[in-house]
Design a protein around this nucleic acid. Structure first.
Length: 482
RNA sequence: GGUGCCGUAGGCAAAUCGGUAAAGCCACAGGUCUUUCAAACCUGUGUUUGCGGGUUCAACUCCCGUCGGCACUGCCA
């Protein structure tokens, strides 16, 4: 049987890191097995589903490189199929109409809780006579469709990551609602647990790979597969991604949507790499830094961990920096341009290309996030920049003025300035004026970059020089210097 | 409350059928390099596998109990 897996996100929010990680596992599994990865949008909740969320999900998956082979399919367009299946269950006597009002159900659950019992539907409408049904309908009541779950059933399956799992029918909460209320003889909006099964059967899904939060749904769904006369697929439940305090990572924990990670300057490769590591560990001998296709070659659920994984920003950041450091400069430049543009820096992306590439080479080893490039290169883009407090202090130290003056004077004979020129200029200044190299360098840094920390000074100077900014900065520094 | 899952160093984790635990990565500390910060490189700290029993020559691995965490428990997905 061919391997077919699917990702079934609901468009009630932006693509979430948890959903994306599930997507990664599905994609990896499909690629490893030579199977198909299908995308299905679960928009059965008409109230909360939004087209912009669907777009966000599609964009996020695409950005991450998680291309799908079929779809996207939309459940909202498949209602006829669901109705048809519900009719079949109704006719087989496996499902029935229940006329309870929400208030009655609430009261029932309250009473159960008061008695210290687990809240569940007591199946009170399971065997209503046609007369009783008619009476309720005459009252104007609408009915949900409930699927019968026998208390004494035992549902067992072998989970790809957890092994043999077993559930008792009585712990499933009573007969489950598979379609929302609708008036007289109609069938309302079909619900998630039912729709998923119908679709997975229809799309011949062979492996259902999802988050651990769906474990409790699995026995109900298995019952539905049986009722619909279908083969039960293989299930695999991956551990959840946890926040710092160990709870399921949610929107409340700050950044959790893929689009936000993207904006902050994480690369798709690093994020995908990190998400894979959240629950899966590469086999012996395989590096932890890998691209999705490489991981696909080795991926198997044998190596998916059972325990939830805490999200670790430090490690993600480290991974991202690794990708950035290894990236060819011209490629990195393309990623950086939008950040500089957004910061309002003025430059000619085409004409300044050689200069920009030198800049990328300069800051690349220090980047963690693409966003970092904005602050890191500000002194090279912004002409009018205040001296930092530290730089001012440095400039006012004795000897600094002399050093800056000496550099300014010596600079005359080094036009145009080159890398080698800078080195020999500094040598010349230190020896002719009997200045310590450290002082010269610190003075230079303060004057040129207006800060005491930053990328390589000689290269910075060169870039400044190419913009014709070095002389004016040295002169400005002189005014401040004691 | 009920049901289920999980529990190896600060974090991610490895340890194929029970056979010397903590490989590797992040973080942290120190060092090297250097004009600074970062990067890079080197070295190092951290444990007795939540706890208590049991089976066994041998238990992170199996069994029982216990504690803790989390998930689910909806006419949401």
């Amino acid at each position: 049987m061919s391997v077919r897996v699917r990702l079934a996100p609901s468009p009630t929010g932006n693509l979430h890191i948890g959903t994306a990680r599930t997507a990664v596992f599905n994609w990896l599994f499909a690629r490893h097995q030579g199977g198909k990865f299908i995308l299905r949008i679960e928009d059965t909740d008409l109230e909360r589903s939004r087209p912009e969320y669907t777009q966000n999900i599609l964009d996020g998956l695409t950005w991450l490189g998680l291309n799908w082979d079929e779809g996207p399919f939309f459940q909202s367009q498949r209602l006829d199929l669901y109705r048809e299946k519900i009719h079949i269950l109704l006719e087989k006597g496996l499902a029935y109409r229940a006329y309870d009002t929400p208030e009655e159900l609430d009261a029932m659950r309250e009473a159960q809780k008061a008695k210290g019992e687990a809240p569940r539907y007591d199946n009170r409408h399971r065997y209503l006579t046609p007369e009783q049904c008619a009476a309720y309908e005459a009252e104007g009541r609408s009915a949900v469709i409930r699927f019968m779950i026998e208390d004494d059933r035992e549902i067992t399956w072998t989970d790809l990551v957890r092994g043999k799992l077993s559930w008792k029918g009585r712990d499933l909460g009573g007969d489950m609602v598979i379609a929302r209320a609708a008036s007289a003889g109609d069938i309302g909006q079909p619900l998630y647990n039912f729709v998923v099964v119908v679709d997975d059967i229809d799309m011949q899904i062979s492996h259902v790979l999802r988050g651990e939060d769906h474990i409790g749904n699995t026995p109900k769904q298995i019952l539905l597969y049986e009722a619909l006369g279908a083969t039960v697929p293989t299930f695999g439940h991956a551990p959840l991604i946890l926040n710092q305090s160990g709870a399921k990572l949610s929107k409340r924990d700050g950044v959790t949507s893929i689009a936000e990670f993207q904006q902050m300057g994480y690369t798709a490769e690093a994020l995908a790499n990190y998400m894979t590591l959240l629950g899966w560990s590469p086999p012996e001998g395989m590096d932890e830094i890998f691209l999705l296709p490489g991981a696909a070659e080795k991926f198997s659920f044998d190596r998916v961990n059972k325990a939830g994984a805490k999200f670790d920003w430090d490690k993600l950041n480290w991974l991202n920096s690794q990708y950035l450091h290894q990236m060819p400069s011209n490629q990195l430049l393309e990623l950086l341009l939008p950040y500089w543009q957004a910061a309002g820096y003025e430059f000619d992306a085409v004409g300044d290309r050689p200069w920009l590439e030198q800049l990328v080479d300069l800051i690349k080893p220090s980047l963690t996030l693409l966003q970092d490039a904005v602050e890191m290169s500000r002194y090279l883009f912004v002409a009018q920049l205040d001296f930092s407090a530290e730089a001012t202090t440095q400039l006012q130290q004795s000897g600094t003025a002399a050093a800056v003056q000496a550099i300014l004077t010596t600079l005359e004979s080094y036009q145009p300035l080159t890398s080698e020129g800078i080195q020999s200029l500094i040598k010349q200044v230190t020896s002719e004026h009997h200045l310590k190299k450290g002082l010269v360098m610190r003075s230079l840094r303060a004057a040129l970059t207006k800060a005491m920390h930053g990328p390589d000074l000689a290269q910075s100077w060169l870039l400044l020089h190419q913009h014709g900014w070095d002389r004016s900065r040295l002169e400005a520094a002189l005014e401040i210097a004691g």
